[in-house]
Structure formats: structure tokens, C-alpha cells
């Protein structure tokens, strides 16, 4: 199980990396943590002409706050986020989810951007990014653009990234999920991709009686199912409200079926986990204890 031959390029600057992407397009593969690309190369399921190793582009490893947004560069490793007090404070939902991503060893090298680029429908990072209405920063020689996660993830292993673009950062809104959040997933073993994962957040406005919430379900269909909303007054019966939200999200879904799980099981888990996390986020943020 050895990779097919390719050209290895180790750019010294982002500009060089982008030039290579511009030249080779979909014949190029960007190598960061290597935890998705490495196995694909070894199995010869990925056969790029050029592998662009961005690991020495230190500028991409920054965790920085940009107003209401936390910008996590393309080389920020999962373990970096778990170890960051700032991340814990600003994006607690992401931090909660990362505990479910892979293992101690893989989190030490695996990047968040790599997970976003790979776009597995069960992966936790894309789910959280979408649930929080974050965005992906895509950079090419042509432009820098910020694509909302809602538009970025287009299906199993499919994204809005153009062939000459590189993910240079993930942008995480910091004004949501800090009052109430919850993450749960069901997988066979610890560290496996989820069969179904559920993420939720809720906030009470600090300027009026209003509130907002977000709910995301991963692993059910080819992309995360998301509902976000809010209102001028917090709902009186949170459980009833959660039921309505779930019903809205799971209406008309056609869950995936595979060796691991049937569509019926996924549908059930979507319902069960979704209700659980949403209710917990709402209760924490909106301060009501429901039976």
C-alpha cells in the first residue's frame, strides 16, 4: 500500500502555494496534517500530480480574533484549539465537538481546515461551522473570499472550493453559543466518525427579550442539516419548541443508509439527539428548567 508517484512541493510562502494551485488546479493536493490525504495517497485513491506541503507556512497557524469572529488559520491543529483558553471561551461548541474528533494522536496533527476541506458528511468540524453560521476563507491568486459554511459544504466530499483556491482559515462567529451549547454524537467506537452527530447553541439577546438558536445534524444526509432562528420572546415551553424545530429539520429528509446504520436508525437518532442537544442549549441560555 504505497502512494503512486507525484511531485512534492514545499512552498516558502502562501504566494508560492497559490501559484502552484493556480498552475495545477485539481491535479494538486494540499498537504497539512495529512490524516485524510495520507491514507488516500497510500491506497492510491488520491493520485495528485503535485502535493503542496503547506506545513512550513507558519502564518497559517495563527489563532486570532477579528472583531466578532475567531479566525483559525489553515494550519491550526485540533489539539491547539483544545488547549486554547481563548477558543474555549469564544467557541465552546467547537471545543466540545473536538473531543469527539479522532484520537489524541490524530488531533495533535490534524487541522480543522483539513476536516473542512475533506467534507465528510459525518465530520464534527464542518457540522459545527455550519451550525454556528461560520465561514470559510478561500484564497487564490485571483481573490480572497469568505464563503458562508451554508454554501461551502455541498455534499459528500464536495465543497465550493475552486481548484485554484486554498482554505486559508475557518471563521468562527463568537457571538453565539457562549450562553448555551451542547454537542452529542453516536458512533460505534470512540473517535469514529459519527453515525449521527448533533450540535446546538442558543443565546438570549443582551438588548431585549429576544433569543436566537442554532441546531445542526451531521451524518444524516450528505450535508449537515441546519436550522437557525430566533424571536423577540423566548418560547414559553422549550420542549414543545424543540419538538417543532426538530420536526422542521427532519421533515422530508432521506437519511443515508450504509453498512453501519439503516436510514431508520439515522432518522431516529437525528430526532433523539437533535432534541436532546437543542433543549439543553435552550435551557442553559434561556434559563428555564423544563421537565
Amino acid at each position: 500500500m504505497k502512494p503512486a508517484a507525484f511531485e512534492y512541493c514545499r512552498p516558502d510562502s502562501l504566494a508560492e502555494a497559490l501559484a502552484l494551485l493556480s498552475e495545477y488546479g485539481d491535479e494538486a493536493a494540499v498537504l497539512a496534517g495529512g490524516l485524510s490525504l495520507g491514507p488516500l495517497l497510500n491506497m492510491r485513491m488520491a493520485r495528485p500530480e503535485v502535493v503542496i506541503d503547506i506545513n512550513r507556512l507558519a502564518d497559517l497557524a495563527r489563532i486570532e480574533r477579528d472583531g466578532e469572529v475567531l479566525r483559525l488559520g489553515a494550519l491550526v491543529r485540533q489539539a491547539d484549539v483544545l488547549a486554547s483558553a481563548e477558543c474555549q471561551d469564544l467557541v465552546p461548541l467547537l471545543v466540545a465537538a473536538l473531543g469527539h474528533v479522532g484520537h489524541y494522536q490524530t488531533r495533535d496533527r490534524g487541522t480543522l481546515a483539513g476536516s473542512a476541506a475533506h467534507a465528510d458528511p459525518s465530520a464534527e468540524v464542518p457540522l459545527c461551522l455550519k451550525t454556528l453560521a461560520g465561514a470559510v476563507e478561500l484564497t487564490s491568486e485571483r481573490q480572497v473570499r469568505r464563503v458562508p459554511a451554508d454554501d461551502f459544504f455541498q455534499g459528500t466530499l464536495t465543497t465550493a472550493r475552486a481548484d485554484d483556491e486554498m482554505i486559508t482559515a475557518l471563521l468562527w462567529p463568537t457571538d453565539r453559543g457562549r450562553q448555551g451549547f451542547a454537542f452529542e454524537e453516536v458512533s460505534e467506537r470512540r473517535g469514529d466518525f459519527a453515525i449521527v452527530a448533533a450540535a446546538a447553541w442558543a443565546e438570549r439577546h443582551d438588548y431585549d427579550e429576544g433569543y436566537r438558536y442554532g441546531l445542526g445534524l451531521g451524518g444524516v444526509e450528505e450535508w449537515s442539516l441546519v436550522s437557525r432562528g430566533g424571536g423577540r420572546r423566548a418560547p414559553e415551553d422549550l420542549a414543545e419548541f424543540a419538538d417543532e424545530v426538530i420536526a422542521g429539520v427532519t421533515e422530508d429528509i432521506e437519511p443515508m443508509r450504509d453498512q453501519r446504520a439503516s436510514a431508520a436508525y439515522r432518522r431516529h437518532l437525528a430526532d433523539h439527539l437533535g432534541r436532546k442537544v437543542l433543549l439543553r442549549a435552550l435551557e442553559t441560555a434561556l434559563g428555564e428548567v423544563q421537565s
Binding site: V186, A261, A264
Partner: peptide, 16 residues
């Protein structure tokens, strides 16, 4: 497996 046990524990589901 999770799916198998869930189906056994919830016989009313139709296993769609």
C-alpha cells in the same frame, strides 16, 4: 451493532 440492538429494542420501528 448499535443499529441491530436499537431495532431489537424498538420492535415497532419498521426498519426503513
Amino acid at each position: 451493532s448499535l443499529d441491530r440492538v436499537w431495532r431489537l429494542a424498538n420492535p415497532e420501528t419498521d426498519g426503513r
